[in-house]
Simulated assay, not measured.
Amino acid sequence: METWTGAFPQLLAAYEHKERFYGVWDATTRPQAEAALDDWIATIPKGQKDVWNDLVRAVGNWREEIMTYFETDIPVTNAYTESINRLAKDKNREGRGYSFEVMRARMLYTTKHKKKAPTAKVSPFYKKTIGYGLPDFAEELNYGVDLSTI
């Protein structure tokens, strides 16, 4: 990285400016974030306005929504929703043209995204009975570590 940025000063300027954009998210209040974003836009390196134009436009179009992130008690993003949308697009591409009904069913009824119910482990001290409270001696009970491991 140092070799490339040393040989190309504009690349170094672009890299540093990208890192400053991440600094906007270090703000704790909306006014701080807005000031940091305005400062970031104002300090775009010379000759790179066209390079950053798409990002500046996107941030401008979504500014209200982006800045709302800083007004909540617990900052949240729509990353989960975007992730689910990506999964739906991947499923659609894999299926090569599923109908809406099939896509909906695959997204709703797939088990990969659902938590599995925890399986209860049977205690080694649990004693089976054959009836009337009498123990079942047909099965040996394990009361600890196997002697071969000690």
Rank of each mutant, 00 (worst) to 15 (best):
Q10V: 08
Q10F: 02
F8T: 07
K46E: 13
T43A: 14
V76C: 06
A79F: 13
A27Y: 15
V24R: 07
P31H: 05
E65P: 00
T77M: 05
E65K: 06
A7S: 13
Y22T: 10
G47S: 00
R20W: 03
Y15I: 09
V76D: 12
P9T: 05
P75E: 08
D38Y: 00
F21L: 15
N53S: 10
H17P: 05
G60P: 04
R57P: 01
P75Y: 14
K18C: 08
T43F: 02
Q48G: 02
T77C: 10
T29H: 03
K18M: 10
E71D: 14
T5I: 12
G47H: 05
T29R: 06
V51P: 01
V59I: 12
T5E: 13
I74E: 14
G47M: 02
F8W: 08
A36Y: 05
P31V: 03
I66M: 09
T43C: 14
W62Q: 15
N78D: 04
E82C: 07
I66T: 12
P9V: 01
A35L: 11
L87H: 06
T29E: 01
K18D: 05
E16D: 15
M67I: 01
I74F: 00
T5G: 04
E65A: 08
G47L: 14
T5L: 08
T81W: 13
W62E: 15
F21C: 03
G23R: 15
A36G: 01
D26T: 11
G23I: 06
Q32D: 11
D50A: 05
P45H: 08
L11T: 11
G60W: 04
L55P: 06
K46G: 09
A35S: 13
T5Q: 13
T5A: 09
K18F: 03
K18I: 09
W4C: 15
R20S: 15
K46Y: 13
G23D: 10
R63K: 11
L87V: 07
F70K: 02
A36C: 04
V24F: 04
A58T: 11
P31K: 05
E16K: 12
Y69P: 12
G23E: 05
E82Y: 07
Y80W: 11
K46D: 13
Y69D: 07
E64D: 15
T43G: 13
Q32C: 03
R63N: 02
R57F: 11
A42T: 03
A33W: 01
P31W: 09
M67S: 06
A42G: 06
